[in-house]
Design a protein around this nucleic acid. Structure first.
Length: 269
DNA sequence: CCAATTGTTATTTA
DNA sequence: ATAAATAACAATTG
């Protein structure tokens, strides 16, 4: 379930390790997370390297190790970053362990939908340099949104909001939250919005991203926190939920290939 | 045992 | 050619 703010929360977990050197690297080589990665170069590059930078774009994290290289991590659906004691033995789902003096940095992912990426050298990877604007950055403009909706005119809004090249960090629950707040039906064709609909979508995209980052990243009891009360988030996960705004029963159905929850009282076709 | 779940990618269809 | 729909992926939970 890690989306924008949950990934940001996870990224910060490793902040404690900034400035510290990696003394040993452990890899579960058979894990599908490493497909396409030169794991020998990864291990060689990380050993003796110092963690110097920590970044995120959308759901993708990037950790810099000086001139040695860049470690990209994606959490997929079930990935997590942890900090464990130095002697921590790697468990079954711990696919990457970076030993540092006094601690172990662990990347675990039971279902292995996540991904690892290694780019040697001081130059960041191309996918980082070419990243699209974050929704809360200046480059995310109403004009870009309109152009994208036009190009994806026939696709349902729900499917379009999940496209990371335009909406970095938005996942299943955030897409539902945005559409609910904007009063837009998730099955509505992206190209069918008028100016008011596009403005609402733009506004609520930014509202949900900002609100999620504010509340979730704070964390509670060593895990990420939930969004504020009154958000659709709290009612969307199981059948029988009710619209936080109108108390009308929510509908759950597959739209755009994903489980989607919406309020018929608020979101009309 | 079967169905459902999640994000991304590969594949198929239009 | 591009865009949209669908299947696949792994493992767990109800």
């Amino acid at each position: 379930m890690p989306e924008l703010a949950e990934v940001e929360y996870m990224r910060r977990h490793w902040d404690v390790a900034l400035g510290a050197t990696v003394t040993a690297v452990e890899l579960h080589l058979r894990a599908r997370l490493f497909r396409g990665v030169d794991t020998a170069a990864l291990a060689r590059g990380l050993e003796g390297a110092t963690l110097t930078a920590s970044h995120r774009t959308g759901k993708q994290m990037l950790f810099g190790f000086g001139a040695a290289g860049w470690l990209g991590l994606h959490l997929g659906m079930t990935g997590e970053l942890r900090v464990e004691p130095a002697a921590y033995p790697a468990g079954r789902h711990d696919h990457l362990v970076l030993r540092q003096p006094g601690r172990a940095l662990v990347f675990a992912d039971p279902r292995m939908f996540g991904a690892v990426d290694w780019t040697p050298g001081a130059q960041p990877p191309g996918w980082w340099l070419a990243r699209p604007p974050e929704i809360l950055e200046r480059g995310f403009t109403p004009a870009r949104l309109e152009a994208f909706l036009t190009r994806r005119a026939k696709a349902p809004l729900k499917a379009v909001l999940l496209l990371q090249e335009m909406f970095p960090g938005v996942g299943n629950w955030m897409a539902d939250e945005v559409l609910w707040r904007a009063g837009l039906h998730p099955a509505r064709a992206a190209g069918s919005l008028d100016a008011a609909g596009r403005a609402a979508l733009y506004r609520e995209l930014r509202f949900v991203c900002r609100g999620a980052l504010r509340s979730i990243v704070r964390g509670v009891d060593g895990h990420w926190a939930d969004p504020p009360r009154g958000w659709l988030f709290h009612a969307r996960w199981t059948d029988g939920g009710r619209c936080p705004r109108t108390d009308v029963p929510l509908v759950r159905e597959t739209i755009g290939g994903r489980t989607t929850c919406w309020s018929p009282a608020v979101q009309k076709r």
